[in-house]
Design a protein around this nucleic acid. Structure first.
Lengths: 173, 173
DNA sequence: GCAATTAAGTTCCCAAAAGGAACTATTGTG
DNA sequence: CACAATAGTTCCTTTTGGGAACTTAATTGC
């Protein structure tokens, strides 16, 4: 089975990976968040081949993560800008930065730091609970089936459910 | 240039992607968080080829994201369990789930929901500031060079820095 | 205690995607 | 009007992915 087929299943992660589950795509988005806009700009900064870049940009535009905005006078030239859907990928980028800073780079050697202009502090992005605001520990989070899985479960054997939906009863770590 | 070469640069995202910048790897981790442990279990749940699975598991073990724990009596059989480094990838998974739930799935159709057992509520994971606790809006976060980049900047032209380090002066969106 | 089954990989082979480099087609500039 | 810059395409080779069968060791069933 190809990994792309997973994005047809009712799984939010798999669907996300269908859009951003590729390293070049995430590096393109990183540079978008750092201000890159133009084809040549991405190509020089990332060093990927032009036809891969064209392919990835086309897919990101098709998924409405980036939009092509014309620039110059009567232009056939475009800038690639983040849409609201694209801007909303910021937590994914931050989660990757933070994990890399924590586990892949010796302390104090972090190449980039984040300043939260609302509070003025150097910040580490933390994943927290929308309801109580506390940081989320995986051991304190339960995963439960939502409406569609509950409905499908009524008409389906557990085994069949597992193979077709990719839903598995949770265990502790 | 191959995308893997980016992980040699002083960029936390690039280094993270060197470990988890692959869809199968992230799907393996998703299932780890849902409780999968064994080779056959991953293979059946994900449907990827056995030699790709073996390759990805080996890499994750080498990176200390998973550890092989023997099971059974005098065993040559192992379970793949998340290490602390692996458990700390939970925010990455949550960020992907949340983005997928928000943008790729119609409202109310979310297949899996998260319950925060500390507060008892169904939660949406939010990326927030470690200092003030508010949710992080990309437009309100500045990226500044950390110590190593500052030091290198003193000995380097801006242009050279861009090409060698992948650091670019920030722009607004 | 031996045969069948399960678990965890390997190996082989073909198809698909990535990577390098050169080419094209517009637009803008001196 | 020549020249450079921008945004792609095209062509070709290498690498990786995907399907299926094979291997080896451990467990279970009789």
């Amino acid at each position: 089975m190809k990994w792309t087929e997973h994005s047809n299943k009712p799984c939010a992660i798999a669907k996300s990976l269908g859009v951003v589950g590729d390293s070049w795509t995430l590096l393109i988005l990183r540079n978008s968040f750092l201000g890159a806009r133009r084809f040549e700009e991405f190509q020089e900064q990332l060093g990927l081949t032009r036809h891969l870049l064209a392919d990835r940009l086309k897919k990101l535009v098709a998924e409405e993560v980036l939009k092509k905005v014309p620039y110059g006078e009567n232009a056939k030239r475009y800038e690639y800008k983040l849409t609201p859907k694209g801007l909303d990928l910021y937590p994914v980028i931050l989660a990757l930065v933070n994990w890399g800073n924590t586990w892949m780079i010796p302390d104090g050697e972090q190449p980039l730091l984040h300043v939260h202009r609302d509070c003025g502090q150097t910040t580490r992005p933390v994943m927290s609970c929308s309801e109580c605001g506390d940081a989320l520990d995986p051991r304190r989070v339960s995963v439960i089936p939502g409406k569609p899985l509950q409905e499908m479960a009524e008409q389906m054997e557990a085994e069949q459910m597992t193979s077709e939906l990719g839903y598995y009863p949770p265990k502790s770590h």
